[in-house]
Write a protein that binds this DNA or RNA. Structure first.
Length: 158
DNA sequence: GCCAACGTTGGC
DNA sequence: GCCAACGTTGGC
């Protein structure tokens, strides 16, 4: 069982959008980066947990926890000419892009990007590394524990 | 909207 | 296989 951080633009799919989905589950489509795809294909298994992160918005940061609820399977949007994620080089026989399903576990207090950066314990968190643009990054168990038990607990307190 | 830092593409 | 040009990401 592994831990992850998955970025989503709230204008595209916010944590509240996810909460409103049937079964609070959504296909994590639209990943068009090979490294991120390979994480889904090679390392994600149902039951893994991930931070749901809002990117490219006024308040970037972690806003919830989701669980991975499927193995990787072909991303339907690559075959759809009307989709912004259409890939003319992908075929049904040899799909290029995959997605997993994610299911909401719970919304959390906002742990802002600034708050993450402020913690020496998180210096080596993959998503904070200079130049990182991956939409899916692994999270060390120690980092997961620190964020959930220390940062989120502090934010919950009055 | 700006721009730094990437990743991808395609000609050679 | 190189690398310039281009596109994208994402914080600010």
């Amino acid at each position: 069982m592994r831990y992850w951080l998955m970025k989503s633009e709230p204008s595209d799919c916010s944590i509240d959008d996810l909460a409103a989905m049937p079964d609070q589950t959504v296909a994590w489509y639209g990943v068009r980066n090979y490294q991120a795809r390979n994480f889904m294909r090679d390392q994600m298994t149902p039951g893994d947990q991930a931070f749901f992160y809002h990117s490219n918005c006024a308040q970037p940061g972690i806003v919830g926890i989701v669980s991975i609820s499927s193995l990787a399977y072909p991303d339907a949007t690559q075959f759809d000419p009307d989709s912004r994620y259409f890939d003319p080089k992908a075929t049904r026989q040899t799909p290029r892009w995959l997605n997993v399903d994610v299911t909401l576990v719970r919304k959390t207090p906002l742990v802002s990007l600034a708050a993450l950066r402020a913690e020496p314990e998180l210096e080596t968190l993959r998503m904070l590394q200079k130049g990182n643009r991956l939409s899916i990054t692994p999270v060390d168990p120690a980092h997961w524990k620190f964020i959930t038990s220390t940062l989120m607990a502090a934010a919950d307190a009055p």
